[in-house]
């Protein structure tokens, strides 16, 4: 029998949770984008998607290293990325949804889902990064200073695709609208507020999510309008990934992500 390394247990204080929510959202979003590697619709866009995935992994690495420091038990970025149980991942539920491949119980898996999700998330991350630049935590502020440039580019690149396909052919418009209808309910979680947000806001660590909505809508709505897409009606559904309660998709992804590190802890090549 192959020995596998055990999961680590984190002391999840509010600041650690706050940083992990952003770190894990970047990490899992990157993993989904990376599924396009070698499968992009054209070579140039294949490279673009992979480059963006790598930017996000870079951001996740910095944040996980910082979260480990705040957590205080001496873990490193790899242990945090690969040795936690599903319940200890605090990413938005949106980022774990299938992006390239669909299945019977999970429609989507369309390039339309990819560009829309990338656009909505890049806009959200840009809002967060531009506020974290003035975080009371200087390390977090430094990470944000670098990341905000990357988010700006991701947003512009994705927005170009959103407009192109939304205001494109009849088929591309139909698929973009369908993707927006699928994605939209998950965006509620981008703007909920809980104790972790409240404490971060109070200590100056970073913005509470509910304060980001107006700025985000201001960035997102003009592009969606230009793309001739109709905003779906608001729903009361709020996903719970940032609380550690995930959809059925994350477990499969973690199994794939973690298998190597679990079997060869600390493995290098």
């Amino acid at each position: 029998m192959t020995s596998t390394s055990e999961s680590i247990r984190l002391n999840l204080t509010p600041p650690v949770r706050y940083v992990l929510r952003i770190a894990d959202s970047c990490l899992i979003h990157a993993q989904r984008l990376a599924e396009w590697c070698g499968h992009g619709p054209v070579l140039e866009e294949d490279i673009a998607l992979t480059n963006m995935a790598l930017d996000l992994i870079g951001q996740a690495r910095s944040l996980l290293t910082h979260a480990a420091r705040l957590e205080g038990q001496g873990f490193d970025e790899d242990q945090l990325a690969f040795l936690r149980d599903e319940r200890n991942y605090l990413n938005l539920t949106l980022v774990e949804q299938p992006m390239r491949r669909s299945s019977a119980h999970a429609p989507g898996g369309d390039f339309a889902d990819t560009v829309l999700r990338n656009f909505l998330l890049a806009s959200w991350l840009k809002s967060i990064w531009s506020r974290l630049i003035s975080s009371s935590d200087t390390e977090l502020a430094a990470i944000a200073g670098k990341a905000v440039k990357e988010a700006r580019y991701h947003q512009q690149h994705a927005a170009d695709w959103v407009v192109r396909l939304g205001d494109g052919t009849e088929e591309s418009a139909r698929r973009m609208q369908a993707a927006l209808t699928r994605i939209w309910p998950y965006t509620n979680e981008l703007f909920v507020r809980d104790g972790v947000d409240a404490e971060a806001e109070k200590s100056g660590l970073g913005p509470a999510r509910d304060g980001l909505r107006e700025d985000w809508l201001g960035q997102v709505q003009p592009v969606l309008a230009q793309a001739c897409l109709t905003l779906p009606a608001a729903t009361p559904f709020v996903s719970t990934g940032t609380l550690g309660r995930h959809s059925e998709h994350l477990g499969f992804m973690l199994a794939e992500m973690q298998s190597l590190q679990r079997q060869h802890p600390g493995g290098r090549w």
Binding site: V42, L43, E44, E45, I47, A48, N51, Q156, H157, D160, R164
Partner: peptide, 17 residues
Amino acid sequence: SLHAPDAKMAVQLAREV
């Protein structure tokens, strides 16, 4: 050289490639 739908996207993809 590269393929792109128009000049604006060509600049972005050139940046990537």
